[in-house]
């Protein structure tokens, strides 16, 4: 009885902690974005306005919509291509025996540990030589490579749970390996494939350092860089705009997080825990 009460109190305070901890800073962002001035607590108090949202969506020279479009195109293209490449490779690794397999997996994993700064300087020169700085490709190509280890890792663990008998049956029926993958294995592992795409989308949507170094202006600049450099567009840090832009940019990732939380969590834990 006594212990049950302790447990309940702990549980309740834990829930409160999670709610406050996760939500309060976030709500503060929404409040600022809907306010006329960021220092309203010192002055006349809360004055509701949607002007910040209207401004960032309509003022062309703030380029916020460009950033948003760039982010969407870059993140979704990367997520799709990387997940596909990862699926094919994961299938080969989990189904076909060939020499150097373990070495390959370990190398890919080890490479995923590299801090981004270790490759961004070289990438900058590389993209410069290709004349690709400030294009979508300058981000999509490194993003694919950077997200592939994760794509491979998650899907390997999904595929390894699908019985090999299914493949064998399909191959007896005359299907090629690739047909087996796309018609039999991938449909069964669809949840895993979806988790992979969602996770990769979020990773690329949020990435900062590559985007900072490899883009120069609104033609390819993504949302995080745009928001970090909003500074000065209107002189002082335009907090209203920054927060309005942040709220809008958070909507897609938060929707994904809330709707697909099961998928994402299983993706993350397949990636992290199956070791």
């Amino acid at each position: 009885m006594n212990e049950k009460r302790i447990k309940n109190i702990l549980k309740l305070s834990g829930i409160c902690f999670v709610l406050i901890f996760s939500l309060v800073p976030f709500i503060w962002m929404v409040i600022i974005s809907l306010n006329e001035r960021p220092d309203f607590l010192l002055h006349e108090g809360f004055r509701l306005t949607v002007a910040n949202f209207v401004d960032i969506l309509t003022m062309g020279n703030l380029h916020f919509l460009d950033y948003l479009k760039n982010s969407f195109v870059i993140a979704s293209t990367t997520a799709l291509i990387s997940s596909l490449i990862g699926a094919v490779a994961a299938y080969a690794i989990s189904r076909i025996t060939f020499t150097g397999k373990t070495l390959l997996v370990l190398t890919v994993l080890a490479l995923s540990m590299f801090p981004q700064i270790c490759i961004v300087g070289y990438l900058f020169k590389f993209m410069t030589n290709l004349g690709m700085i400030n294009t979508y490709g300058a981000l999509i190509l490194p993003y694919i490579a950077w997200s592939l280890p994760l794509a491979l890792w998650i899907q390997m663990s999904y595929f390894s749970r699908i019985p090999r008998e299914l493949d064998k049956a399909a191959q007896v029926d005359g299907a090629s390996r690739l047909q087996t993958l796309f018609k039999i294995v991938l449909p069964i592992a669809a949840p895993g494939f979806l988790s992979t795409i969602l996770l990769l989308f979020m990773f690329c949507f949020n990435e900062f350092l590559f985007a900072l170094m490899l883009t120069a202006d609104h033609k390819a600049r993504t949302v995080p860089v745009g928001i970090s450099l909003f500074q000065g567009l209107h002189g002082e840090l335009p907090w209203g705009y920054i927060m309005a832009a942040s709220v809008i940019s958070c909507v897609p990732v938060i929707l994904i997080a809330l709707i697909f939380q099961r998928r994402i969590i299983s993706g993350l834990t397949h990636g992290a825990v199956k070791q």
Partner: peptide, 17 residues
Amino acid sequence: PTDTDQRRQGLVIPLRS
């Protein structure tokens, strides 16, 4: 941007490339 260092970077990246 107004911030000089950030503004310089905005020119250096396209010029260097």
